[in-house]
Design a protein around this nucleic acid. Structure first.
Lengths: 108, 108
DNA sequence: TATATTTGCAACCATATAGTTGCACAATGG
DNA sequence: CCATTGTGCAACTATATGGTTGCAAATATA
């Protein structure tokens, strides 16, 4: 739990993905977040710590409340990793397109 | 290990991400894949099983060899999940753009 | 047919993980 | 100042995870 911690590991947990989605549009306090789940406040708190550790969210103190906000830019790192495959699925699509063209050409 | 198993959990492991990248362009056998890592063949074999279970890769028997191929379409599911945040980071970018425009307007 | 190669699978182990309970600390309100 | 509220953190537990070793099955080669 306190060892290697990266974005991919962070989003592996379904609760954490739900938290990310929940606060994506609006920063929320731990209590408010916990109310959206079956999980206890402490459990959510642990998830928030993990998400904070890998900088996917950032806490903003406001009086005694802490609003957690999504760091959308960090989410882009996942997008960045997918980039390499995006090229491939475009190529495969083009190859399919080529095959279809040949079939069409044969028919004529 | 034998319970819930989804794509996000699959890509949480760095070795599995490396395997995915490795076979992205060309299908490979377990032995060939294992040679690229420090990990033992059996360890790689387990990772391949996990990746197969969540249909990120598919085995193709060829004689006594099995070629594992990446299912690029399955990778798109991650892309699909990111879609919701893509909208947000575009909005945030536009907001920033707006702020910059106002600063520029003030200067004139 | 006997042997080697390629692979998967089960059993086991050390460690990581998610969750719970209990407590401490800071800020707010009476 | 005292009680309440919002939060984090440490200790503990059950389970999940990744890795290793050993074995079995299937295909290929001599």
């Amino acid at each position: 739990m306190e060892t290697r911690r990266d974005i991919f590991q962070a989003i592996a947990d379904p609760t954490r993905r739900a938290i990310i989605t929940l606060i994506a549009l609006q920063a929320m306090t731990p209590n408010a977040i916990a109310e959206h789940f079956d999980a206890t406040r402490q459990s959510v708190s642990k998830h928030l710590r993990i998400l904070t550790e890998c900088e996917l969210i950032t806490p903003q103190q406001q009086g005694r409340e802490i609003y957690y906000q999504l760091e959308v830019n960090k989410m882009k790192e996942i997008d960045k990793w997918l980039e390499q495959f995006r090229k491939i699925w475009e190529v495969r699509f083009n190859q399919l397109d080529e095959v279809l063209s040949k079939i069409k050409a044969k028919k004529q």
